[in-house]
Design a protein around this nucleic acid. Structure first.
Length: 411
DNA sequence: TCTGGGGTCCTAGGACCC
DNA sequence: TCTGGGGTCCTAGGACCC
């Protein structure tokens, strides 16, 4: 059996690169893309900023301490989503087998494209040139016999890298590689492995399977395979089995809150965000989860409820979320609130049978369109939310003004 | 002046039914 | 009435990814 040829494409500092390429003032300068709230962190930083020690996840003040000249850019997700989509489309020119792994990463199985394009390096170079030409940004590409190794390879040279791991290179590459470098082995697993005396992939691959399954259960089998650089998971093209499993929104509030009225106000907006997106995806769900992180940052919990019916109207989601809120005794002020809808059912597009339901469906649709104009992420940022004082100054939903909350009967 | 937000998958235990 | 056991659904929580 012949081996496969897989590419992994990883856009370099994607959000920051898009900002720099579309704004000459930012080119060659240390910039960082963030959210808009008071407690936002660095989402991505340019390589110029990374040279100063700026890292993803840092608080803004912390990043500025590393790099006083750092330019902060509030992210524009639509711009990134659009650019990402165009780039993914380019990939389809080389093979239909493209798996979108995230907004800035994709796998391509080019095994059957080589008769047309010669070598995988050729495909990689064509793609890099086109992305650079169209969007002025670079990517790193890994080429390998499977997804695990292709992803590993794309990580080896940044930015603008091209790294090939050939079948005959695998054992040499894995031998001294720290286990943490593999996609799927995180902090906790790394620590457990270290405690077992396993530090490198070479050691992991040689570890008796029973020792690993004894510690990790059936995941142990997979771990050993990973250590050996083996992976037979297929590249799954978009559209086949990629139905969403849940839809959620959460936000860290600008300030911790503990007044019920205030909690409900945010809960309502989150429910609206979730409902709107569920309707756009044409899904309904019957499990609603409320997520709370307390002021101390470390304590958090989720509470879920499965309903008898499938729902996707904002007010139904809100109602379930409030029920969940009322079933717990809050122990601290709240730092972060989240609402998620799961156990989803995907429905085919069809109009309701009865006139009044049809009208309601149309109204919902119109409302969704209005809200869409403000962008998916607008409401994420607590600072932009309408305060009770300037009630209604910002369109979230005509039908759901914050003042309406007071009428909701919860006990 | 601390530490975002979107997801997926897996496990463990209890309730309940057959 | 006692016994064991399998299957499914649900909740909570953890690990991991970007």
């Amino acid at each position: 059996m012949g081996h496969r040829t897989i590419l992994h494409i990883d856009m370099n500092a994607f959000f920051a690169s898009v900002e720099q390429s579309t704004n000459p003032d930012l080119q060659g300068r240390p910039i960082a893309v963030t959210g808009g709230g008071q407690r936002t962190v660095i989402t991505t930083s340019s390589y110029e900023a990374r040279a100063f020690g700026v890292r993803t996840g840092m608080a803004v003040w912390e990043a500025k301490r590393c790099c006083p000249e750092l330019i902060i850019v509030v992210g524009d997700n639509r711009k990134y989503t659009h650019t990402s989509g165009e780039i993914m489309k380019m990939m389809l020119d080389y093979t239909p087998e493209v798996e979108v792994f995230s907004i800035d990463e994709a796998f391509m199985d080019v095994t059957h494209s080589l008769s047309l394009f010669n070598t995988p390096e050729n495909i990689a170079n064509l793609l890099k040139a086109r992305i650079k030409h169209s969007f002025g940004i670079t990517c790193s590409i890994g080429i390998a016999p499977n997804k695990l190794l292709a992803k590993l390879a794309s990580d080896m040279q940044k930015p603008d890298g091209l790294t090939i791991i050939r079948p005959e290179d695998v054992s040499r590459v894995m031998e001294r590689l720290p286990v943490k470098e593999l996609c799927g082995i995180g902090r906790k697993t790394e620590r457990q492995l270290t405690l077992m005396g396993i530090r490198t992939c070479g050691e992991l691959g040689r570890c008796p399977e029973e020792r690993l399954t004894g510690k990790f259960g059936i995941a142990g089998k997979r771990l050993k395979e990973m250590g050996l650089g083996r992976d037979d998971s297929p590249v799954i093209p978009h559209g086949e089995d990629d139905e969403v499993k849940s839809v959620g929104h959460s936000m860290t509030l600008d300030k911790d809150i503990d007044r019920r009225e205030e909690v409900l106000r945010f809960l309502l907006q989150l429910s609206e965000m979730v409902g709107r997106r569920a309707r756009r995806y044409n899904v309904t769900g019957r499990t609603v989860t409320l997520y709370v992180r307390y002021a101390d940052f470390f304590t958090s919990f989720g509470k879920q409820q499965t309903l008898a019916n499938y729902i996707n109207l904002s007010e139904e989601i809100f109602k379930a979320a409030v029920e969940l809120l009322d079933s717990v005794e809050l122990e601290q002020p709240i730092r972060l609130l989240g609402v998620r809808l799961s156990s989803l059912r995907h429905q085919s597009e069809q109009l309701p049978l009865f006139e009044d339901e049809r009208r309601k469906a149309f109204a919902t649709q119109a409302m969704d369109e209005v809200n869409s104009r403000y962008g998916e992420f607008t409401v994420t940022f607590g600072s932009l939310l309408p305060s009770r004082e300037k009630n209604g100054s910002f369109v979230i939903s005509p039908a759901w003004r914050p003042s309406g909350i007071r009428n909701v009967d919860v006990k």
